[in-house]
Design a protein around this nucleic acid. Structure first.
Lengths: 239, 239
DNA sequence: CTTAAACACTTGGTCAGACCAGTTTGCAGG
DNA sequence: CCTGCAAACTGGTCTGACCAAGTGTTTAAG
């Protein structure tokens, strides 16, 4: 059907503007994730059956509004819209036990909420990706460095956050994990030093979080995600 | 010189973006007036030696930001940027003498400031337009209706505001004159009914405002613009 | 075997020309 | 003087081409 055929829903708005608004909606619904690449202009134009110029117009306005960032020669990326407005404090306290415990308290809250929504909203494809990542994490966890273990853990939880389809949870998670990576890594180091390995309780809880999300048991996913962190917190606080 | 020649001032920014910022600057400096038409895309492209698509990109982002309004088939127009944020009250009190006097008090302030800046900043072309409008106003003032007289007066003062090159004065003037036209027209009606004609004092003051601006006497222009209104106000308040 | 350079590919930035569709303006005819 | 129509003007969209910056892969040299 020719591109100019009157088959568009909102004829009083142009095609470029409608694409702009559709992309905004996708961002708001957590379908376009901060940090990820957009399809190229040519790809979008072909998929949507419109000219590259109309796509460029929409993307150009998204860039002007701070939603995406584009530069010649590389793919456009979604921005974290919370980043300009949120400066999380105390990055330098990564080694402080008391502060590490506070970070864990926020993790418990954050990851509980993410798990709750992910259990409800994750698409089948997202669940598949989650399962794959969990399997990899489990498999590689036997031989990795502490640093690699910490990164894998956050990747797993970031995937859960992304499956929540809540842009605020996703954005905050990104900033939180990035800012407090040292504290989180410090927690893992401390734990491994204390027990010589991942305590069985923790390993089992990871498995249970994963199972609860795959089973779409929101209540259970949230509870176990919280307990997972608070359990580790309690172990460390006993020092 | 080919359009792609590296002769642009800010090479790290694209041509479309630089045009966007240049137009924003022109708006901010009161050089592109709310309510006026922009040159067409084709005209701008030709004058600036760039493609129509680059011009469209810049204008599209201006429209998205609320600076201009464009629609198919008609020229793009500059928006009054203050309009969405300012709701002037009490439009329905146009016949109320007390309120009319209040409106005159604000006119005195507003028109004094506009005259002060216009005397300093009007370009020679703007002074010429002002002279022409004044001559027309004087000439037609002998035979026009009260309504037409009121319109002509506000056109004259709006031109002075535009010559001030202060976007806030220009924007506010537009909104103020539009909102309170009935009160201003009521003042003129009341004055003409009281004295049978424009009081000589008022006519002479119009002339003096005009002379002061043409002579670039800012101090005098402001004083006489204020006195012009306050004189009329005093006449009416004596009722 | 490692590193650096070259090449190919991908991507955004810009251009020219054409066509579509909505609006405005001017002119002719009644 | 009013109305209708045609032409011109304007923004919206499209196609194809080219430029330039960045990325990834391959090859050659040390």
């Amino acid at each position: 059907m020719p591109a100019r055929e009157q088959n568009d829903e909102c004829p009083e708005q142009g095609r470029s503007q409608r694409l702009y608004e559709r992309l905004i909606a996708q961002i708001a619904e957590g379908d376009l994730l901060p940090g990820t690449k957009l399809p190229s202009e040519r790809t979008l134009a072909k998929e949507l059956g419109m000219s590259r110029e109309m796509v460029r117009g929409a993307l150009s306005r998204l860039a002007a509004g701070g939603y995406i960032q584009s530069a010649q020669g590389r793919a456009s990326r979604l921005c974290n819209l919370m980043a300009p407005h949120l400066q999380l404090p105390l990055e330098g306290l990564g080694d402080d036990l008391e502060f590490q415990l506070q970070v864990m308290e926020i993790r418990a809250l954050l990851e509980g909420e993410c798990a709750w929504y992910a259990a409800q909203r994750a698409s089948d494809a997202e669940l598949a990706v989650l399962a794959e990542e969990y399997a990899l994490m489990y498999e590689r966890g036997k031989s990795e460095t502490t640093l690699a273990k910490a990164r894998a853990d956050l990747r797993f939880h970031m995937l859960i956050a992304e499956s929540s389809h809540n842009l605020l949870l996703i954005s905050f998670s990104q900033l939180f994990y990035e800012r407090y990576f040292n504290a989180i890594y410090g927690v893992l180091s401390r734990t491994l030093k204390r027990f010589g390995r991942y305590p069985e309780g923790i390993r089992g809880q990871h498995a249970e979080i994963h199972r609860a999300i795959q089973a779409r048991d929101a209540e259970h996913a949230r509870r176990i995600a919280r307990e997972h962190i608070l359990y580790t917190r309690a172990l460390l606080a006993a020092e």
